[in-house]
């Protein structure tokens, strides 16, 4: 189970992306100095674009106005964060209704996802896509990250397992492993409660709490397995499996070598 590399690359790439984005935005502002009305036009354009995608990919299950059909729930009031999570992790658009719709290939670009998010957000008020300051664990100190661990064990580990390895839920559902999930998506999942996951609102779990949880997950994920190979990381179950396979099996093979006699005993 190698989950660390992707997260790691992301974590390293993020500051650069941020700096570049800020530069571009800043330049655009200082050089073009757009009139305020043009921002609104842009907004409308984005919603229009989102609607086009929504009508093609989403409306068959969620209804033309997101009112919800038998195949998919209403999207009124779910907010942009929900759309960004569902589409950004490849859960949506789903091929078919299942007990649990798994994460998958992300089929739309972030721009397109933003457009659909903006369109769905226009159905009714809901959680917005977070600013990076809300979820980015950058700048947390060691004590805060450790506190994130305590919060994770209080609120998350029951379903998602120790250090977010995932866990079983009733009737074939499961709480997914969090190793490959991007920071922003963890934040959005906490706030919007996708599928069976409960919501954790801002008043109960503040943004700083969530940042600390994300910081803990990232640090724990990048940390070495101090004791050696993880051997499957399923705790005592995998440990028991290996002690029989390698311990009993291996030593029995050696025992057979020890007890061999005659010409066979080289």
């Amino acid at each position: 189970m190698n989950t660390e590399s992707k997260r790691k690359r992301k974590a390293q790439a993020r500051p650069w992306v941020l700096v570049m984005a800020l530069l571009v935005v800043g330049l655009a502002y200082s050089v073009v100095v757009p009139p305020s009305s043009s921002a609104e036009t842009e907004m409308t354009q984005q919603i229009e674009e989102g609607k086009a995608i929504f009508d093609v990919s989403c409306s068959s299950c969620h209804g033309l106005n997101g009112e919800g059909l038998s195949a998919g729930p209403s999207l009124i009031g779910v907010g942009a964060a929900s759309v960004d999570f569902q589409m950004g992790t490849g859960r949506m658009p789903a091929a078919r209704g299942e007990a649990q719709i798994p994460a998958g290939e992300v089929v739309y670009s972030q721009e397109q996802i933003d457009a659909v998010s903006a369109y769905v957000a226009s159905f009714g008020p809901g959680p917005a896509i977070p600013e990076s300051s809300q979820y980015d664990p950058e700048g947390l100190n060691a004590d805060e990250i450790a506190r994130g661990g305590a919060l994770f064990r209080a609120n998350c580990s029951a379903c998602h397992g120790i250090v977010g390895g995932g866990g079983a839920m009733p009737e074939g559902k499961h709480a997914p492993a969090l190793g490959d999930t991007e920071d922003v998506h963890i934040y959005e999942a906490v706030r919007t409660g996708p599928q069976q996951m409960p919501t954790f609102s801002k008043d109960v779990l503040e943004d700083d709490d969530v940042r600390q949880i994300i910081g803990f997950l990232n640090t724990a994920d990048e940390a070495p397995r101090y004791g050696g190979l993880g051997m499957g990381n399923h705790g005592p179950v995998s440990e028991g499996f290996w002690i029989f396979l390698l311990g009993i099996g291996g030593l029995s093979a050696i025992a057979a070598w020890i007890a061999k006699k005659g010409a066979g005993a080289r």
Binding site: I162, Y226, H234
Partner: peptide, 21 residues
């Protein structure tokens, strides 16, 4: 070579906490 019972990952015991698996 083989890690066993990484107690540091599980955190301290607290009667209100549990982990899946």
């Amino acid at each position: 070579l083989f890690q066993i019972n990484p107690v540091w990952l599980y955190g301290p015991y607290d009667p209100a906490k549990v982990t899946a698996g």
